[in-house]
Design a protein around this nucleic acid. Sequence first.
DNA 1: CTGTATCCCAGCGGATACTG
DNA 2: CAGTATCCGCTGGGATACAG
Lengths: 173, 173
Amino acid sequence: MDSDDLSVADPTITRTGSFADRDAWGPLGEWCAVERAMTVIGNRSSMILIREAFYGGHRFDDLVRRTGLAETVAAKRLRQLVDDGLMEQRPYREPGARTRHEYVLTDRGRALFPLFVSLMRWGQGDGGPSRMDLRHAGCGAPLQPIVRCEAGHEVGIGETEIHLRPKVTSGAA
Amino acid sequence: MDSDDLSVADPTITRTGSFADRDAWGPLGEWCAVERAMTVIGNRSSMILIREAFYGGHRFDDLVRRTGLAETVAAKRLRQLVDDGLMEQRPYREPGARTRHEYVLTDRGRALFPLFVSLMRWGQGDGGPSRMDLRHAGCGAPLQPIVRCEAGHEVGIGETEIHLRPKVTSGAA
DNA sequence: CTGTATCCCAGCGGATACTG
DNA sequence: CAGTATCCGCTGGGATACAG
């Protein structure tokens, strides 16, 4: 039996479903999307390149200068981000110049928007300096990341349940 | 002049304010909360330990087993998480046993909740297996991370502005 | 049960030099 | 302007053995 007698009462996610085989999970995160996500965006250089892409940076030169990364690192990460489907490289031509490439976020890359805002807001909570201020263009109010259920309720940790799916429902993909 | 002539039209954050000294940012992210955040939680082991803490894991043994981390790595990361103020170590006594310690998320650790949900949902978007399902305990509906302004509007990338603060407003903290 | 000490390997990130 | 090649130090992460 798991040692689940909580000796402290702090808000955590409530567990529902069969957690009996919980320990059988492979160590490589074959079942856990969090681990997979971290292998893709879980390093500093990837994240700040994505940051600059959100800020509208497209060209290699700009991305390097505005991130402060070494060219070698930036090139390697950008290639990886393209491979992972977060960015794509588009050719374009300025009049009177030769063809260039530019990096653009894909839909999957842009889907990181809530994560990006969460990361920035959380990072600002350490009292350190931050010159960034994300606001709603419509009304100028600052942005906040929140968690909501599909029925429209705002949800905190204490109202969250985690359901563990049985093993693999081979019927549904 | 920056090369900001967008040759592609993809939704990005609109930049407002003085971006002239944008390139003067130090490479170590002294002004950027995203970079600072990534140095704290930007590795796989930290994040999956936080994951287990959200799931209600407290004891060293459980955390090691349920994350699949090596004990050495788990111990090192937990110490770092405590140092960084994301977890705290509380002593407790079960009747008839000697004093133990348990790891509990601090407020700053729990503030990662939107980021955690964002990370999981984004990770699930790759089509890989995931046995996790986060739901609202009240109504059972699945959770979604969203971005909202303080005036209550839901905000997408296209409606976001980023303001860059001048240098340091020495008057305001 | 909760770690620490030691050793090891792979990957991240930077510096320098070079190419189309 | 947009990278690649090479080298090199630091950290992340694991294996094994040991300790309170």
